[in-house]
Computed example of a mutant assay.
Amino acid sequence: MFSLDDADVAILHHLQQNATLKTRELSEMVNLSYTPVYERVRKLEKEGIIKKYVALVDREKVGKKLMVICSVALKEHSRAMGERFVQAVMGYTEVLECLNISGEYDFLLKVVVEDMPEYQKFLMEKLGSLENIIGSTQSQFVMGEIKATTALSLQRRQG
Protein backbone atom coordinates (compact mmCIF):
# COMPACT_ATOMS: atom_id res chain seq x y z
CA MET A 1 0.00 0.00 0.00
CA PHE A 2 1.24 3.47 -0.90
CA SER A 3 1.99 5.55 2.21
CA LEU A 4 0.72 9.13 2.23
CA ASP A 5 2.65 11.80 4.09
CA ASP A 6 1.21 15.10 5.36
CA ALA A 7 2.00 16.92 2.10
CA ASP A 8 0.24 14.23 0.04
CA VAL A 9 -2.81 14.44 2.32
CA ALA A 10 -2.89 18.23 1.97
CA ILE A 11 -2.59 18.02 -1.82
CA LEU A 12 -5.39 15.45 -2.01
CA HIS A 13 -7.57 17.51 0.31
CA HIS A 14 -7.31 20.57 -1.94
CA LEU A 15 -7.71 18.62 -5.19
CA GLN A 16 -10.84 16.92 -3.85
CA GLN A 17 -12.32 20.36 -3.25
CA ASN A 18 -11.25 21.75 -6.62
CA ALA A 19 -9.57 19.52 -9.21
CA THR A 20 -8.99 22.47 -11.53
CA LEU A 21 -6.33 23.99 -9.28
CA LYS A 22 -3.14 24.80 -11.13
CA THR A 23 0.09 23.40 -9.72
CA ARG A 24 1.22 26.92 -8.78
CA GLU A 25 -1.99 27.54 -6.78
CA LEU A 26 -1.71 24.15 -5.13
CA SER A 27 1.92 24.73 -4.20
CA GLU A 28 0.96 27.96 -2.41
CA MET A 29 -1.84 26.20 -0.54
CA VAL A 30 0.36 23.36 0.72
CA ASN A 31 3.45 25.53 1.26
CA LEU A 32 5.74 23.63 -1.11
CA SER A 33 7.49 24.78 -4.26
CA TYR A 34 6.11 24.08 -7.73
CA THR A 35 8.31 21.10 -8.72
CA PRO A 36 7.73 18.91 -5.63
CA VAL A 37 3.97 19.49 -5.87
CA TYR A 38 3.98 18.65 -9.58
CA GLU A 39 5.98 15.46 -8.93
CA ARG A 40 3.75 14.42 -6.00
CA VAL A 41 0.57 14.87 -8.04
CA ARG A 42 2.03 12.82 -10.91
CA LYS A 43 3.07 10.08 -8.44
CA LEU A 44 -0.42 10.06 -6.87
CA GLU A 45 -1.86 9.66 -10.37
CA LYS A 46 0.63 6.93 -11.31
CA GLU A 47 -0.10 4.99 -8.09
CA GLY A 48 -3.83 5.14 -8.87
CA ILE A 49 -4.62 7.15 -5.74
CA ILE A 50 -5.95 9.89 -8.00
CA LYS A 51 -8.11 7.84 -10.35
CA LYS A 52 -9.41 10.63 -12.60
CA TYR A 53 -10.61 14.22 -12.71
CA VAL A 54 -14.28 14.96 -13.34
CA ALA A 55 -16.81 17.79 -13.45
CA LEU A 56 -19.67 17.31 -11.01
CA VAL A 57 -22.95 18.27 -12.68
CA ASP A 58 -26.00 19.50 -10.76
CA ARG A 59 -28.47 16.80 -11.76
CA GLU A 60 -31.56 18.90 -11.10
CA LYS A 61 -30.33 21.75 -13.31
CA VAL A 62 -30.04 19.32 -16.22
CA GLY A 63 -33.51 17.88 -15.67
CA LYS A 64 -32.62 14.72 -13.71
CA LYS A 65 -34.95 15.38 -10.81
CA LEU A 66 -35.73 11.83 -9.63
CA MET A 67 -33.16 9.79 -7.68
CA VAL A 68 -34.04 6.22 -6.77
CA ILE A 69 -32.24 3.67 -4.64
CA CYS A 70 -33.08 0.33 -6.19
CA SER A 71 -32.31 -2.88 -4.30
CA VAL A 72 -31.88 -5.97 -6.47
CA ALA A 73 -31.88 -9.63 -5.46
CA LEU A 74 -30.61 -12.18 -7.97
CA LYS A 75 -32.52 -15.39 -8.68
CA GLU A 76 -29.41 -17.46 -8.26
CA HIS A 77 -26.09 -16.77 -6.57
CA SER A 78 -23.64 -18.04 -9.13
CA ARG A 79 -20.62 -16.23 -10.49
CA ALA A 80 -22.08 -16.34 -14.01
CA MET A 81 -25.37 -14.72 -12.92
CA GLY A 82 -23.55 -12.02 -10.98
CA GLU A 83 -21.25 -11.25 -13.91
CA ARG A 84 -24.17 -11.06 -16.35
CA PHE A 85 -25.99 -8.65 -14.05
CA VAL A 86 -22.91 -6.46 -13.56
CA GLN A 87 -22.20 -6.41 -17.30
CA ALA A 88 -25.77 -5.28 -18.02
CA VAL A 89 -25.78 -2.60 -15.31
CA MET A 90 -22.47 -1.17 -16.54
CA GLY A 91 -24.24 -0.23 -19.78
CA TYR A 92 -27.16 1.58 -18.12
CA THR A 93 -26.49 5.32 -18.14
CA GLU A 94 -29.29 5.86 -15.61
CA VAL A 95 -27.27 3.94 -12.98
CA LEU A 96 -24.72 6.19 -11.30
CA GLU A 97 -23.58 3.66 -8.70
CA CYS A 98 -23.87 -0.08 -8.26
CA LEU A 99 -22.84 -1.65 -4.97
CA ASN A 100 -22.60 -5.37 -4.22
CA ILE A 101 -24.07 -5.71 -0.73
CA SER A 102 -24.84 -8.35 1.88
CA GLY A 103 -28.24 -9.07 3.37
CA GLU A 104 -31.64 -9.58 1.79
CA TYR A 105 -30.56 -7.96 -1.50
CA ASP A 106 -27.44 -8.52 -3.58
CA PHE A 107 -26.99 -5.12 -5.24
CA LEU A 108 -27.89 -1.53 -4.54
CA LEU A 109 -28.30 0.80 -7.52
CA LYS A 110 -28.35 4.60 -7.43
CA VAL A 111 -30.52 5.55 -10.39
CA VAL A 112 -31.07 9.11 -11.62
CA VAL A 113 -33.75 9.93 -14.20
CA GLU A 114 -35.98 12.83 -15.23
CA ASP A 115 -39.23 11.64 -13.68
CA MET A 116 -41.39 8.69 -12.62
CA PRO A 117 -42.37 7.65 -16.18
CA GLU A 118 -38.68 7.49 -17.14
CA TYR A 119 -37.93 5.37 -14.05
CA GLN A 120 -40.82 3.06 -14.86
CA LYS A 121 -39.47 2.67 -18.41
CA PHE A 122 -35.98 1.92 -17.01
CA LEU A 123 -37.43 -0.62 -14.58
CA MET A 124 -39.59 -2.37 -17.15
CA GLU A 125 -37.40 -2.23 -20.25
CA LYS A 126 -33.91 -2.49 -18.81
CA LEU A 127 -33.97 -4.16 -15.41
CA GLY A 128 -37.08 -6.08 -16.41
CA SER A 129 -35.29 -7.50 -19.44
CA LEU A 130 -32.99 -9.28 -16.99
CA GLU A 131 -35.88 -11.46 -15.81
CA ASN A 132 -33.78 -14.63 -15.91
CA ILE A 133 -31.27 -12.96 -13.56
CA ILE A 134 -33.28 -10.79 -11.18
CA GLY A 135 -35.37 -12.39 -8.46
CA SER A 136 -36.82 -9.18 -7.00
CA THR A 137 -36.35 -5.44 -6.77
CA GLN A 138 -37.37 -2.75 -4.32
CA SER A 139 -37.37 0.96 -5.13
CA GLN A 140 -36.90 3.76 -2.62
CA PHE A 141 -37.47 7.29 -3.88
CA VAL A 142 -35.11 9.95 -2.56
CA MET A 143 -37.07 12.90 -1.20
CA GLY A 144 -34.01 15.05 -0.49
CA GLU A 145 -30.22 14.83 -0.44
CA ILE A 146 -28.90 15.76 2.99
CA LYS A 147 -25.20 15.16 2.30
CA ALA A 148 -23.58 14.34 -1.01
CA THR A 149 -19.81 14.45 -1.24
CA THR A 150 -17.07 12.79 -3.21
CA ALA A 151 -14.26 13.84 -0.85
CA LEU A 152 -12.65 11.16 1.32
CA SER A 153 -11.35 11.95 4.80
CA LEU A 154 -7.60 11.34 4.69
CA GLN A 155 -6.27 11.80 8.21
CA ARG A 156 -2.96 10.02 8.57
CA ARG A 157 -2.61 7.28 11.16
CA GLN A 158 0.19 7.91 13.62
CA GLY A 159 2.68 5.21 14.47
Rank of each mutant, 00 (worst) to 15 (best):
Ser3Leu: 09
Asp5Phe: 04
Asp6Gln: 12
Val9Met: 10
Ile11Gln: 04
His14Met: 06
His14Phe: 09
Gln16Val: 05
Thr20His: 14
Thr20Gly: 14
Thr23Glu: 00
Arg24Ala: 15
Arg24Ile: 15
Arg24Pro: 10
Glu25Met: 06
Glu28Val: 05
Met29Phe: 05
Leu32Gln: 13
Leu32Thr: 04
Tyr34Ile: 11
Val41Met: 03
Val41Asn: 05
Lys46Phe: 03
Glu47Ser: 07
Ile50Ala: 00
Tyr53Val: 07
Tyr53Thr: 09
Leu56Ser: 13
Arg59Lys: 12
Val62Asp: 05
Gly63Glu: 11
Gly63Ala: 05
Gly63Pro: 04
Cys70Ile: 03
Val72Phe: 02
His77Val: 04
His77Ser: 12
Arg79Tyr: 15
Ala80His: 15
Gly82Trp: 02
Arg84Asn: 13
Arg84Phe: 07
Phe85Lys: 01
Phe85Thr: 00
Val86Glu: 13
Ala88Phe: 06
Met90Ser: 14
Tyr92Glu: 09
Glu97Leu: 07
Gly103Asn: 04
Gly103Gln: 06
Glu104Phe: 09
Tyr105Lys: 07
Tyr105Asp: 07
Asp106Thr: 09
Phe107Val: 03
Leu108Met: 14
Leu108Ala: 10
Leu109Gly: 01
Lys110Cys: 05
Lys110Glu: 05
Glu114Thr: 13
Tyr119Cys: 01
Tyr119Phe: 15
Gln120Ser: 12
Phe122Ile: 01
Met124Ser: 14
Lys126Ile: 06
Leu127Trp: 08
Gly128Phe: 08
Leu130Arg: 04
Glu131Met: 14
Asn132Pro: 06
Thr137Asp: 04
Gln138Met: 13
Ser139Pro: 02
Ser139Leu: 00
Met143Asn: 06
Gly144Met: 12
Thr149Phe: 09
Thr149Ala: 08
Thr149Cys: 03
Thr149Pro: 00
Ala151Asn: 06
Ala151Arg: 13
Leu152Gln: 11
Gly159Trp: 09
